[in-house]
Design a protein around this nucleic acid. Structure first.
Lengths: 344, 344
DNA sequence: CTGAAAGCGCTTACAG
DNA sequence: CTGAAAGCGCTTACAG
């Protein structure tokens, strides 16, 4: 292994000078810096992160913490956005899927563990108690969240109430009156009230349109396609189908579409469906959706984190801020006026 | 930060003993070991990977190297399988998407860099030249690949020729004679001949059935849904559509289905489509597919890598081995006998 | 602009 | 079974 000493010997300078030259620190003549850089490159020298990390306390890595089951398109895509920016800045990215969320000691252990391996942290949609938030804040590492708003922690997010409003406003404008919501989520499966917020927007717009929200038209659904199938079955069981369904995510919407088709229901003639996300495959499904900039949220969060890592401990360290990204209705072929309205 | 010294002081022993006790090394009395473990847990002590890594040369991390654009369901799912096992074993997972693949100096730099940050490496479907393979082998770290077979490197894979045979045999058995292949891939976009192998299986089965492969029925397609749309357009442009299309992946198949539907072609009545992978959303599409165990390949590779890390440098270090995982036809609603055959 | 020395927090022979 | 000492490969005051 080529070490700093080898480079120093070859360049005829001290390790100190090599270290300074390679890291762009002041106090090295231009000539020397260039020479050292060339020699290091030629020898393929890279400083050992372990060795460099000991004296500095910096690890050169950023952690991405997500819920235990970090599958699902949303988390993957956010993490991709984060990775893109963080890798581009020369940091390593460590992904942690928390498995033992309910363990009592989890947090004390986690912050210690994380503090020793990462210089900064991106927290994806985790259910954090005030104690945990506090542990994170006092971890002495910059932290940023994507999704949930928590006291003392900066967040990149979207307005989920507005998402619900946008989706349902579209359906109401098309003439729908019996509109179902596939996404009731008493357990907060994402760890923060995404589904309840979207449901609130749904109810607000219904009321504005003079429609009293009907609990029978709200079916529970986690954020996976299988849940959409179940939600459709649930609607069916409860009586006459709604003419339109607002699904809490595109994956759920896909499940609804699948179940409806299998049931001989035509889209959009018999049933309109609108989702949320603009999943990579939503267009293939012809799915009308409220698009959110998923990878972009990851990128913005990563940029903000880098800035915080750069200024940590200085006066220019940014305060707590909540960045709300815009969402946008994308109309495709899964929504249309209801048959009843067309018949009138 | 709680360090080993703090634990040692609190336990009334030396740091040496704490180190040994916590790592399960022999030479510590049971009583003491238990006491030290309890104290460390109570204090939330975790050894600093940087500090531990310096003397040992081990980093406690595993690298996953994938092509520059590591999006796409396949890579994500493989990486999930890897992460599951590696995290479970207490290692960190570092993901590297190679961005500067064509850079001449890439490799020398990479191996040095990687060697200093990971204890082992999982290589996903990368285009590796013999020089690069050699650099990897001489890196003095265990390496395992998923996908491509390379001299001196162990691989977990599937038989892509057989995949092509399975898909096309299904179509031929249904009575199809004009069968298209959406996936011609002269550029080897995955870096190893996945598409050509699948095409070979396609041609073999056609010939067995007495059908001479027709170059006009082979359209190029990378491994994304958009390519399926283009492939469909290409078939359309070239004249009468085939009655069935074998798509090189499920995402491509989805694109074909989308384009065909938009074109008023019914599935499976007018056109049968079969894909490869059993993508998480394939069932939602009703897609007939040749399933491969994607996450499982990641898990198997990770297990094998852990075993290699454990035995590296010893006599029990496993030799080079190629593990071929089984694939399986899953019949859904996107395939049926051709209309012509039905009419006869 | 440059370098010698100390030190980061662990682990590993070595000695007992 | 236990501990004191050296050392891993860097970076950081400190001195010049």
């Amino acid at each position: 292994m080529t070490g700093i000493i080898d480079v120093a010997a070859r360049a005829g300078v001290s390790a100190t000078t090599v270290s300074r030259a390679l890291r762009g620190l002041p106090g090295v003549s231009d000539t020397r810096r260039r020479m050292i850089r060339d020699i290091a490159a030629e020898m393929g020298y890279v400083a050992s992160p372990s060795a460099a990390g000991l004296p500095t306390g910096r690890t050169g890595a950023v952690g991405v913490v997500s819920p235990p089951v970090a599958s699902g398109w949303y988390f993957t895509a956010i993490a991709e956005g984060v990775q893109e920016v963080i890798s581009g800045a020369g940091y390593d990215v460590l992904r942690y899927g928390l498995t033992h969320i309910e363990t009592e000691r989890r947090h004390a252990v986690d912050t210690q563990l994380l503090r020793k391996r990462v210089d900064g942290l991106v927290v994806l949609s985790l259910p954090l108690t005030p104690d945990e938030v506090n542990a994170l804040v006092t971890m002495q590492r910059p932290v940023i969240a994507v999704g949930p708003v928590m006291p003392g922690i900066s967040t990149v997010r979207i307005d989920d109430v507005e998402v619900g409003r946008t989706a349902v406003r579209h359906l109401v404008n098309l003439g729908h009156r019996r509109i179902g919501f596939a996404g009731g989520d008493p357990g907060h499966s994402l760890g923060f009230p995404v589904a309840p917020d979207r449901q609130q927007g749904y109810e607000e717009v219904l009321r504005e349109a003079g429609i009293e929200p009907d609990p029978k038209l709200v079916a529970p659904a986690k954020f996976i396609a299988e849940a959409g199938v179940q939600a459709y079955a649930e609607f069916k069981r409860r009586g006459p189908l709604p003419t339109a369904i607002f699904a809490v995510s595109d994956e759920v919407a896909m499940g609804v579409v699948h179940a409806a088709r299998a049931d001989g229901v035509r889209m959009p003639e018999d049933l309109s469906v609108v989702g949320v996300d603009d999943h990579d495959l939503a267009w293939v499904f012809g799915l009308t959706t409220v698009a959110q900039p998923v990878r972009e949220q990851g990128r913005i969060a990563a940029d903000s984190l880098l800035e915080r890592m750069r200024t940590f401990g200085t006066a220019t360290y940014p305060g707590v801020e909540v960045t709300t990204m815009p969402t946008e209705l994308i109309i495709r072929s899964s929504t249309a006026p209801p048959r009843a309205a067309a018949h009138r």
